[in-house]
């Protein structure tokens, strides 16, 4: 496992928060996923060894909790809320618009590798529906027009950083 020094430092620190090491399983999964983009089999085994549990004890978390993934995703992660308050304000149209903009289906990596779009359950911002999270940022009242402008912005940022990749 090739984790960044900062990730290793965070892992060492977070384990001290709990009287029992196993409690640090979710934080470690988050840290490793943030570091590597997804949770590989090797990562599952590494976390299990670090917390002195069996790999199955970590694997069963990865398969249960929706936020953990075993495969890489696009460079940007677009999560559109699907649940009732967003849906009645047009969340399905918002989601279709993002898919159209990047020419990709749900849960796939777009052909340009830029995004993965997901339809997720309630993001707890129902008063400003429909809402979308792009990576860690919440965007409110995202109608199809705003979905287009957000998509444009992602594409522009991608072009700007393409030289540095």
């Amino acid at each position: 496992m090739n984790l960044r020094a900062d990730t290793l430092r965070r892992i060492d620190e977070v384990i001290t928060h709990y009287p029992q090491k196993r409690s640090a399983a979710l934080p470690l999964l988050h840290f490793v996923q943030e570091d590597q983009g997804h949770v590989s089999t090797e990562a599952i085994e590494w976390i299990a060894a670090r917390l002195e549990v069996e790999p199955i004890n970590i694997y069963e978390l990865v398969t249960f909790y929706p936020m953990f993934r075993q495969k890489p995703i696009g460079r940007r992660h677009i999560k559109v809320c699907r649940t009732l308050s967003c849906a009645i304000m047009g969340g399905y149209r918002t989601c279709s618009e993002f898919q159209k903009q990047f020419g990709t289906g749900l849960g796939e990596v777009s052909p340009d590798g830029e995004v993965t779009i997901e339809f997720v359950e309630c993001l707890a911002s129902c008063g400003t529906a429909p809402v979308v999270m792009i990576d860690d940022d919440l965007h409110e009242r995202v109608d199809p027009a705003r979905a287009r402008s957000l998509s444009e912005k992602i594409k522009a940022e991608s072009r700007a950083t393409a030289g540095t990749r």
Binding site: Y18, Q20, V53, L61, F64, P66, F68, V120
Partner: peptide, 25 residues
């Protein structure tokens, strides 16, 4: 201490939350 969940509604149920905090499903 702050402990982050990972997208499961059932963690709002208090005993489910406790299991999750113990590092389990």
């Amino acid at each position: 201490y702050v402990h982050r969940g990972a997208g499961a509604y059932i963690c709002g149920e208090e005993t489910g939350l406790i299991e999750s905090l113990e590092g389990k499903r």
